[in-house]
Design a protein around this nucleic acid. Sequence first.
DNA 1: CAGTGGATGCTCT
DNA 2: GAGCATCCACTGT
Length: 194
Amino acid sequence: MKPPAPARLDRGFFDRSVHAVAPDLIGATLLVDGVGGVIVEVEAYHHTDPASHSHGGRTERNAVMFGPPGHAYVYRSYGIHWCVNAVCEPAGEASAVLIRALAPTHGLDRMRARRGLDDARLLCAGPGRLCQALGITKTLDGAPLDAPPFVLLARESTPAIVAGPRIGITKAADKPWRYGLAGSRFLSRPFRAG
DNA sequence: CAGTGGATGCTCT
DNA sequence: GAGCATCCACTGT
C-alpha cells in the first residue's frame, strides 16, 4: 500500500492565534513552484506586539496583514531582501508568522542557481535567503498559501521544538516568540540552550 | 568564532 | 530624514 499523501494546510489552519500557529508550522513543507523544503524556523508577530509591522495600524505596506488568514505577507527588508509571512487569526487581527528558515528538500538546483551558492546549509537559512532561493518577491504579497504557486503540506509527526528571543528587532526583544526545529542544521542562527 | 560596517530602497513621521 | 523582522565581507582573536 502506498502511504497517504501529506495533507495540505488549509486556511482554517491559520485562523487561530499566531502563538498557536507558529510552533505548529515547524515541520511543515513550503514549496513555491515546486521549490522549497521543511520549515525549521519561524517567528510570531502579534498585532499587540510593538515589534509587529501591524502594531501602528494599517498602512499600504502592511495591508495584507489586516486581510484574511492563510495569505502571504511579503515585504522588503533593508532595501535589499524580501521576507515572507503567513497571515494568522481572524481577518482584521493583523498577526503573522515570519518564515525564517527551511531545510531544503525540493529543487536544490534552482535554489543554488538563484543564490549563487553550493552549500545546502546556506540556501534557506534566513528570511531573505529563503525568499531568494524560492523566488518570492512583492508579486506574491497577498497571494493565498493554499493555491499555486504555493504548496503547504502538514507535517506527519510532531517534532521537538525549541523557542527563544526573536532576531534583529529592537522592540519587545525579550519575548520568546522565535520557534525552531530542535537540532536542525538549517537554522539562521542556533538557539541558546536548544 | 565574534564583532563591525556597508549596501540599498522603501515606509512612515 | 530616520529607521529598519538582513546579508555579506572583512577584521581580529
